[in-house]
Amino acid sequence: MTPPLRRAHRFIWLLLVVALPLGFLATRPTKQSPWLQEPVLPPQSTAMPVLLRTIDADSLVLNLRQSVRGTERQLEILLKQPFETPSAVVCIRQEGSRRAVGLLNAPGLYRFPLPTGTNRPLVEIVDDVHGRTVKTVQL
């Protein structure tokens, strides 16, 4: 290597040995952590006061609630981990028929009114788009 090129090498690396670590460090504080906030969910109906049963089923917690008089029942679902499906419809299977009561989307708390006379509902989470049941819980 010619002496001028060698001198150029030396100059370049004296410059880079300072500039590169500085440039690298300068980008560190600009690293953006995700801005955290509690996501806003659509408002849900008020929880009925009497908790009849609770079942923790991995990604969701199901509560069967009823009114003070015991005439109305409510299904409360705490969705901890959403289903990776295009659709998650909450269905109640009773006496051989299936009835959709609501949809699960983002993680959070959901409450759905249950048909009158629902006692021990078989709750099914159905992917309506693919037409398959993704979870079944006997409450």
Partner: peptide, 30 residues
């Protein structure tokens, strides 16, 4: 001489790549 000078631009490429990485993937892979 010209060839070596030309090929010394690898140092500029290295500096550009270091910043490419620092401003890119290292902002996500923390």
């Amino acid at each position: 001489r010209v060839w070596k000078t030309l090929h010394m631009s690898v140092y500029l490429a290295y500096a550009l790549i270091v910043m490419h990485v620092a401003l890119g993937i290292l902002q996500q892979e923390t």
